[in-house]
Amino acid sequence: MEEGYTSLPTSHLLGSVPAVVAEGKISSTVGQASTGNLQPFPPYDGGYNAPGSPISAQQTTTNWQGIFSISSYTQYFNVDSDVVIDRMISSIYPMNGFDRKIDGNPDLYGPVWISATLIFMLAALGNVGTYLKQKGVDPSTTWIFDVSYINWAACIIFGYALAVPAAFYFLLHYFGHSASLIRLWCMWGYSLFVFLPTCLLLVVPMAVFQWIITILSGAVSSWFVTLNLKAYAQASDMMVLLVSAMVLQFALALFIKIFFFA
C-alpha cells in the first residue's frame, strides 16, 4: 500500500524532476543498482524474539488496558518449533528437567494446542473406540457419530487445564508460597501430552490392554506433575497438595477411559 503514495506519476510532467522519496524506488526498479542502503519497513521479524532473550519492556502490560492488547500476550507464545517439541518430549521423560526448561520462558502455546488436539482425538477416537467395542459384542451395530463427545471433551479438557492450575495457584498463595500462574498453566498443559498417544492406543478393543494403558498414562502424567510441584512443596504441609494433584491426574486418566472409550 505505501508505495502508492510515494510513487505518484509526477515524473512524466515536462520539466519536473522525480520526487526525492521515490528516488530509491525508481533507481532500484530501473537500474537494479545496489540496494544496500534501503531498509525494509517494517523490519522483517519485528515481532520476533529469540526464545531465550528477555522481553522488551514495551511489550509487558503496565496498565489495565493492556489486557485488551494482543501484543501483551506475545510473551507467553514466545517459542520456536524445536523448543515446543523439546518440551513435549521431556514431558514424557519426567527425568529430563522440564522445570529448568520452562524457567524464564513458560509458554502457553503448548497447553492451548495440546488441549485442542486432545479434544479432537477424544471426540474422534472415542467414537471409533466405542463403535469397535460394541461391534465386538454385537456385529450388527451400525456406525453412529455422537457429536456430544465434542462438547464433553471441550468442557472437560479446557476446564481441567484452566481450573486445576488456577486452584493450585490460589492454594499455594494461601499457604504462603510464591507461584507463577503462567508456569502452572504451562506445566499442567504439557502434562496432558501423554494422553495423546494414550487415545490412539485406547482404540484397540481389548479391556485388559486398555486398563494397562490407562494406568500407565495416569502414572506418567501424575509423576510429571508431582516432580514439578515438588519445588514448591518443601514444607511437610504441602504433601496434601502433592497427593491431591496426583489423584486429580489419575482421575482424569480414568475419566477418559471410562467416559470416552466405554
Partner: peptide, 19 residues
C-alpha cells in the same frame, strides 16, 4: 543517490532517461 545507469553522463541526461 544511486545512479540510474552505470554510464551516467549528466543530470539532464538522467532525467531524459527517466522520461
Amino acid at each position: 543517490t544511486i545512479p540510474l545507469h552505470h554510464s551516467s553522463q549528466s543530470d539532464i541526461d538522467e532525467i531524459e532517461n527517466l522520461f
